[in-house]
Each structure stands twice: as structure tokens, then as C-alpha cells.
């Protein structure tokens, strides 16, 4: 009970902090908009005819899921900096389990990511992405799953990076390749073997592919944009989530106290 209370408190704080920080809100919305608007728009205008599917929609779905994944990852990693600064210090010395802290953080950052998702969806509607209420309802669980996987991925990063400085330097290396390996902007149905192997190692791939499988279900372009079955994606996501969370939290707690 105490832990549930703590999880709710930690999650609530993350959401409140996000909503009270206008610069963070703007930053969180701008990047997806640039990706969808500029990349999606230009790809569609130049390559759309030959691809056999609408590039704007393809990139929109990719960026939406990538935003969920990445936002919750980054939110978790911010613990590195926060544990010496703000209220996070207070959280770390409170009499609650470390697992409750990590879990509360994942829940909070997931809600923050979903807020950003609403902005991306709103822009998608304006840009003419064919979104229906039904497709959005169907997408919601996939978005939540992307957030949770991103959060768990953040926990494993948290346990491996020693400082925020290290995180800032290494994060682009962890994320940028994943954009392409996960097929956020580019189709990855056909890849040379080495790239295919790397692509299958990228956690973001499964979140993006699962979301697309839901969004494109029953549409003619499904075989062109979706790589694996939703069941395979779900199974891999579940396994990665469990491993990242347990190993990451254990390592993080150990590193914290045994400096």
C-alpha cells in the first residue's frame, strides 16, 4: 500500500513537472513535428509514388511510437542528474523500495510521453494523416506498450551510464542508429544481413513495428510496412521489458550504494 502510494506520488510529480515547464513542452513537441512535417512531407513528395504507400503516414506512425519510446527513456535517465539536485534526492532517502521508485518513474514518464503523443496526433490530423477514432483507440495500447518498453530501456541505460555527462554523450549513439534500425523513417522489410541483425537487436524496432501492425491492420499496404507479426513483437517486448527492468534496477541500486 505504501509502495502504491509512493508510485502514484512519483508518477504525479513527473507529470506535474512536465506540465509546469513550458520550454520542455515546446521542445518535446517541436521535434516530432519537424520529423513528421519536413521528413514525411518531402519523402512523400519525392518517393511516395514509387513506394506504394503514403510516406507521410508511414513516418507519422514511426515518429509517434518513437516519441513514446524515447521520451520515457530520457525521462528515466534524467534520474542521473536529478538524484543530486531536486526533489529526487528526497525520493531516494524516503523509506520506499527502489523498485517502487523506478516503477513510479516509468509510469510518470509514460504519461508524460502520452501527452506528447497527443500533440503529435493533433499535428497528424492537421497534416492529413488518415486517423479515425477507431484507429486511435486501437493504437492506444500499442502506445502505452512503447512507453513501458522505452521506460525499461531507460532503466538499463541508467544502470550503465555513470553520470549525466556520460549519458548526454552516449545517448545519441544509442538512439540515432535505432531511428534507422527500427525503421522510424525508412522501410526495413528488406535489409542486408548485418543491418538486419542489428535491426533485430534494436528494442525500438519492436515498439514501432507493433504500432504499425495495429495501425495498418486490414489495409492493403500492411505487407509493405510491417515486418513481423504482432505476436512476435509482443513476445520480444515482454521479454526485453522484464530483463531490462530487473537487471537495470538491480544494477542501478547496487551502483548507487556501492560507490
Amino acid at each position: 500500500m505504501r509502495d502504491l502510494n509512493a508510485i502514484a506520488t512519483i508518477a504525479y510529480r513527473d507529470v506535474l513537472k512536465f506540465l509546469r515547464d513550458p520550454s520542455r513542452i515546446i521542445g518535446a513537441i517541436i521535434f516530432p513535428l519537424v520529423f513528421v512535417g519536413v521528413l514525411g512531407g518531402s519523402f512523400q513528395a519525392n518517393l511516395g509514388k514509387t513506394a506504394g504507400f503514403n510516406f507521410l503516414t508511414f513516418i507519422f506512425t514511426g515518429v509517434l511510437l518513437q516519441t513514446m519510446f524515447q521520451s520515457s527513456s530520457l525521462g528515466i535517465v534524467s534520474l542521473l542528474e536529478d538524484r543530486d539536485n531536486d526533489f529526487s534526492q528526497e525520493i531516494f532517502i524516503s523509506p520506499i523500495s527502489r523498485y517502487a521508485i523506478i516503477f513510479g518513474k516509468i509510469v510518470g514518464e509514460s504519461v508524460v510521453a502520452l501527452f506528447q503523443g497527443i500533440a503529435v496526433i493533433a499535428f497528424g490530423l492537421v497534416a492529413g494523416v488518415p486517423l479515425t477514432v477507431a484507429s486511435l483507440v486501437a493504437l492506444t495500447p500499442a502506445l502505452i506498450i512503447a512507453c513501458l518498453l522505452g521506460g525499461a530501456f531507460g532503466v538499463i541505460c541508467l544502470s550503465l551510464f555513470s553520470s549525466q555527462r556520460a549519458a548526454n554523450q552516449l545517448f545519441p549513439m544509442v538512439f540515432l542508429p535505432q531511428f534507422f534500425l527500427a525503421g522510424v523513417f525508412n522501410p526495413i522489410r528488406k535489409l542486408p544481413l548485418p543491418l538486419d541483425i542489428l535491426s533485430h537487436l534494436a528494442p525500438m524496432r519492436y515498439a514501432v513495428d507493433l504500432g504499425r501492425a495495429v495501425f495498418y491492420a486490414g489495409k492493403p499496404e500492411y505487407p509493405l510496412v510491417v515486418s513481423d507479426t504482432p505476436f512476435l513483437n509482443l513476445a520480444v517486448i515482454a521479454a526485453m521489458f522484464a530483463v531490462f527492468l530487473v537487471a537495470g534496477t538491480t544494477l542501478f541500486v547496487r551502483n548507487e550504494r556501492n560507490k
Binding site: 502510494n5 509512493a6 539536485n85 531536486d86 528526497e90 523509506p95
Partner: peptide, 28 residues
């Protein structure tokens, strides 16, 4: 702590409330 451990963007009451619920003094 040496460095302040308050959330600057939250109100004084919110900072107090977070502590109270974290320590299980009151339900969240």
C-alpha cells in the same frame, strides 16, 4: 542536503504533499 531538494516549479504545498505521501503519512 547541501543542495536544495525542492521542485522549484511546484508549489510549497505540493512539495510538502509529495513528502507526506512518500512517507505514507497520508494517502496520495
Amino acid at each position: 542536503f547541501q543542495k536544495p531538494s525542492l521542485d522549484l516549479n511546484l508549489t510549497a504545498e505540493e512539495n510538502i504533499r509529495l513528502h507526506a505521501t512518500l512517507y505514507g503519512l497520508y494517502p496520495f
